[in-house]
Design a protein around this nucleic acid. Structure first.
Lengths: 236, 236
DNA sequence: ACCTGAACACCGTTCAAGT
DNA sequence: ACCTGAACACCGTTCAAGT
């Protein structure tokens, strides 16, 4: 399930040698397991069997580490060439698969996706979650190869990224951070909610519908709809 | 422009008395001026002419403070009754105005909107940026009053919130956080970018288009499009 | 009743010192 | 060459003490 490739020649459990990659990988694992709040230089060092100060050989401070974590996650996004776009796969197949790849990434690392979505990219015109030059180049050239005018490819880049951020950020928040969120006791309402919700009759009545997790359909339908919208504007 | 009501009877510059509201207001101002990173209990105390420990009388720790900040911002969202919905204003006029109100809020507090977008709401079925019971109740009852089936109102709540989060988060990030972002030296490319971008010809060629700020049109067109989509599904 | 001083446990980060 | 100990400046938070 992990989108991060595992080194198949894992040395024995003893700490092999410190490297930037090992550090970043450990940071991802730490956040996946214990949440963003648990990621401190000292805790990360401890996880690697080393003092915090040793990390500064390979990482230029905490900010640089977070940047590297986001880069590692987003560089796992496959290029069009790496995708399996079926026989009659046009640009729609590309965007559909790209969207679902990024969704899988968000679901594999729900604690990290907010970081991907909110950290300022290197250049002001790079937009999360497609924030690496390689991915953006691939996105734009793939769409133009399929006949998009250049400005339409840029417009598609904007609407596609904006859709992904909104949909996926709310999705991972709802399924959300089960360690951070208050654990729901049962399927019925919390005690006391009746009192609190009595002033909000619609919310009270629709609590069931509001609580349903429809992320799968919502994402699929939203993406289809976005493609329709993009299609209607290809020429200009 | 600020969406936070100002107390017209501002006492003289001397610190009147500490109160939860004064603390939260000062926190908003501090973040607006110096960014989220500058918000520490100690710095906030200093700004109020008091030691950090004094804040704990009114605020239950830092997390509670952040919650209160987000609450203050989102409770500035007007209800349908408070809006000026023109003569023939149906649910479209309501959603249009609501969308633009929330956009104004995001632009008034670009450093805080990521907080609004990413903090886990009190209940799992409350979605940013419409994360107060009052606002959600108003949203659902307004749409049903205009003839929406209940499940369609819930679906509209989901797509509306998701649209706002994606669009506005990327918008404030792009215009963004000028203190945090690297200051662009001139309108031309940074020195060295030619080398770096030569491997990304599409990005290089489209750098101009990619850098344009089209937030106004994008938001307006995206919102219109969302309304069309909602309209097509009202009955079921 | 309200605020403060001192203290505790934790940060990120630097740098001379160890091996 | 690589890691560590000690130190510095900063956190959030608690609590007895001051007024």
């Amino acid at each position: 399930m992990s989108t991060i490739p595992q080194d198949p020649s894992d040395p024995p459990p003893e700490h092999p040698t410190l490297s930037r990659e090992r550090i970043v990988r450990a940071a991802v694992a730490l956040v996946d397991e214990e949440g963003l709040g648990a990621l401190s230089m000292r805790a990360l060092g401890a996880r690697l069997g080393v003092e915090a100060m040793a990390l500064y050989r390979h990482v230029d401070g905490r900010e640089d580490l977070l940047e590297a974590v986001v880069d590692m996650l987003t560089s796992a996004i496959p290029s069009a060439a790496e995708m399996d776009l079926g026989p009659g796969g046009g640009w729609q197949a590309y965007l559909l698969q790209l969207g679902h790849e990024i969704r899988a990434l968000a679901e594999a690392h729900p604690q990290l996706f907010p970081l991907v979505a909110t950290r300022h990219p290197a250049a002001p015109w790079l937009r999360p979650p497609l924030r690496s030059l390689t991915t953006v180049e691939d996105f734009l050239s793939t769409l133009t190869r399929f006949g998009f005018e250049e400005d339409r490819a840029v417009a598609a880049y904007r609407s596609f990224t904006s859709f992904l951020v909104g949909q996926l950020l709310l999705e991972v928040a709802q399924r959300g951070a089960p360690t951070t969120a208050v654990a729901p006791q049962t399927e019925e309402e919390d005690p006391g909610d009746d009192d609190a919700l009595s002033e909000y009759p619609m919310v009270h009545r629709l609590q069931g519908e509001l609580s349903e997790d429809r992320s799968d359909e919502e994402f699929a339908r939203g993406l289809e709809h976005l493609l329709d919208r993009i299609e209607r504007h290809i020429p200009g």
